[in-house]
Design a protein around this nucleic acid. Structure first.
Lengths: 119, 119
DNA sequence: TCCTGTGCTACGATAATCGAAGCATAATGC
DNA sequence: GCATTATGCTTCGATTATCGTAGCACAGGA
């Protein structure tokens, strides 16, 4: 255990917010590197540790394990027979990102159409 | 110039993904520390630099400036008379988080009701 | 001129993340 | 029994991101 920051949880004080408002805890949790990506990669079903690691582009196992712990602690994810899977709560959260996926396409179109820079 | 990581953009390769899929770029962008929070704090209107910094719990100005650059570069935010404000795109993205806010409340309720640990 | 507020930079210190290697366990094949 | 493979996961040194404080340059206002 590397004993990093406390895992953000609703009702607790979180990074940069003394309020403990749920959304602040959520933003803290999701704002950590790879967290959003991990949830995203589990959208089509459970994945074992190493497969999940690969899907996340070779994220280092220590960080992945840390993220898995945080997400498990917050009941967004659980370990089962087939590997790690989103819980019912996790699926709900993921579903909120469905529109985000579609929006990202429009965002890309807006950026690509509006400017002619970069690659 | 600290020349950190390249700013993620749709169509470019991003952290842990060679695909350049818009949603991957978005996850990379939003997965950086304080990014979600900055967008969130601008939900009620423009804020000047220092006020935004304060709302984010005293985030260090260098990081805030980095985040602002990234968000400006991606047209989610712009600097105007009254300070920094979300663009139309930024508002759209924020609106996707409306359900997230409500969901966070239910999430907190689920966690609080289901377990009796921690403090 | 002296405040105050603005956006923002510099820089040393600290914490998070990386990258690679490896451990312990369990299942499989021989 | 013994090697092989796959599993979840740990360790550790190196790199990167973020922090925290101080301060600069500019623009009013008094």
């Amino acid at each position: 255990m590397t004993a990093s920051r406390p895992i953000p949880r609703p009702g607790r004080r979180v990074r940069g917010s003394a309020s403990g408002r749920p959304v602040m805890a959520l933003l803290d949790l999701l704002g950590r590197r790879w967290t959003l990506r991990v949830i995203w990669e589990l959208r089509d079903g459970p994945l074992v540790f190493r497969e999940l690691q690969a899907r996340c582009g070779g994220i280092s196992p220590s960080v992945l394990n840390t993220r898995l712990s945080e997400l498990r602690e917050n009941r967004l994810l659980e370990a089962g027979e087939a590997g790690y899977a989103l819980t019912a709560l996790g699926v709900e959260l993921l579903e909120l990102f469905g529109p985000v996926d579609r929006w990202a396409e429009r965002w890309a179109a807006a950026l690509g159409g509006a400017r002619r820079r970069g690659a």
